[in-house]
Computed example of a mutant assay.
Amino acid sequence: MRVALVGARGHGARHVENLLRLGHDGVATFVGVVDVADVDVPVPSYPDLPSLAAELHPEVVVVSSPPATRRDLVLEAFGLGCDVLVEKPAVLSVADFDEISAAAHDRGLVCQVGFQTQGTGSYRRLCSLIGSGALGDISGIGAAGRWVRTDSYYERAEWAGRQGEDGTLVNPFAHALQNALLLADVEERTDITVELELYRCRDTITADDTACVRVTSDGAPPVVVATTLCATTSLPPVVLVHGSLGQAVWWYDDDRLTVNDHRMAVAPPADLLENLIRHRQSGEPLVAPLAAARAFTSVVEQCGKADVPLLPARRVGDRVVLDGIDEVVVRAAEKVATFAELGCRFGR
């Protein structure tokens, strides 16, 4: 299938590499890119999608542009008759989510969201374990994200650190949130309750750099996700599934899963673009369909509207450290408890 890419810089560079790989393997034809800047790619570059489509006729468009631009680009791609793989977050509001969902349905097109960890073998194995009852009754799902980020992280793009487009749950630890919602089986539900605690340790940003969210829904286990970019040391993000017969620990970035301290064998990962192409060619189910991002989008929208108070923190060279947060985010995931419930001095 003929594939075009919108946004070839930043994370988009990974899509360039993947498209070249798929071209070499004969899976896809990488026809061109759209970018507002000059980019060094071995395919034609265009200033906008209609110009590219008029000459190159793509069948699939990969959207890896800044978050606030994605809604319009997805709708534009649909208008050209193209299926879409869009980076997360696909959109920033539930209204926009419903709009692009309806547009895809009306045109008979599909939209996959760039939650690549849903394609990992560890995710599929964990879903199987939960579904089979191997973990018993699930009492809660916790996730912890703990990274160190320097000032340059917020200088990489105009939208970085901007509330409504960025934030730990919206961008760097979006996978932690989405994975927890999926494992709780609430990803498509409209009746979720969201409790947010958002904070920032830099006065140069408006989005959070430290956060905790609890998501609950009738008949589903509670979800708590705690995150920070102001840690003393970075650790791989982790999802904990608390069951009556044991605990699963999933390091999704490493595609590693343990159950009761026993490492589980997992299948190879599935590439999201390859999966979308096979979906079109043979009906293979989508790995990360847009429909499965509804609850995530609801949390994203609320993150864009919530208060984000400034916390006192230590400046250490080109980074900021929030003392004690390293342990707190892990405890929140372990206890499925909010910052406030853990007695944090900054908890509400």
Rank of each mutant, 00 (worst) to 15 (best):
D218V: 06
V170M: 04
A180E: 01
S139Q: 13
D218A: 10
A160N: 10
L181V: 00
R214W: 07
L182Y: 09
R214L: 03
V186A: 00
L169G: 07
E155K: 13
T190L: 04
A143N: 08
D203Y: 14
A207G: 02
Q178H: 13
Y153E: 12
D151E: 15
D166A: 10
E155Y: 05
A184L: 00
V238G: 11
G219N: 04
A143F: 06
E155I: 01
R189G: 00
H242F: 13
I192S: 00
C201T: 12
E158K: 08
G246V: 03
A211N: 00
T228F: 02
G164H: 15
S244A: 06
S234N: 11
W147D: 12
L182G: 05
R200N: 01
A176F: 06
G164A: 07
D166S: 08
V223Y: 03
D191A: 01
C212S: 13
S244P: 09
R146Y: 10
V215L: 12
L245Y: 12
C212G: 05
L169K: 04
V194I: 13
L235D: 13
V186I: 12
F173E: 13
S139G: 14
P221Y: 11
T206H: 14
E187N: 03
Q163G: 07
I141N: 04
P221G: 05
V239K: 03
G145F: 05
G167S: 11
D151Y: 06
W159V: 11
V215M: 09
A231E: 08
D191Y: 09
Q163C: 15
T168N: 06
R162W: 06
H242K: 11
W159Q: 14
A160H: 15
T210V: 10
R214K: 14
N179V: 09
F173G: 07
A207H: 02
R149M: 11
V238L: 14
A231G: 04
A207S: 10
V215C: 05
Y153C: 06
L245I: 00
E155G: 13
P222Y: 14
H175S: 02
T228A: 03
L169H: 04
C212D: 11
S234K: 14
D209T: 09
T206E: 06
R146M: 14
G219V: 11
L183G: 03
R149V: 15
H175Y: 05
G140I: 06
G167W: 02
L169N: 12
V194E: 07
V194C: 08
A157N: 12
L177A: 03
A144Y: 12
I141C: 07
A211C: 11
A144H: 03
D208E: 00
D209L: 09
I205M: 15
T228Q: 02
T227E: 10
T232F: 09
A207N: 08
L182D: 10
A143C: 07
C201S: 12
L235Y: 12
G161R: 06
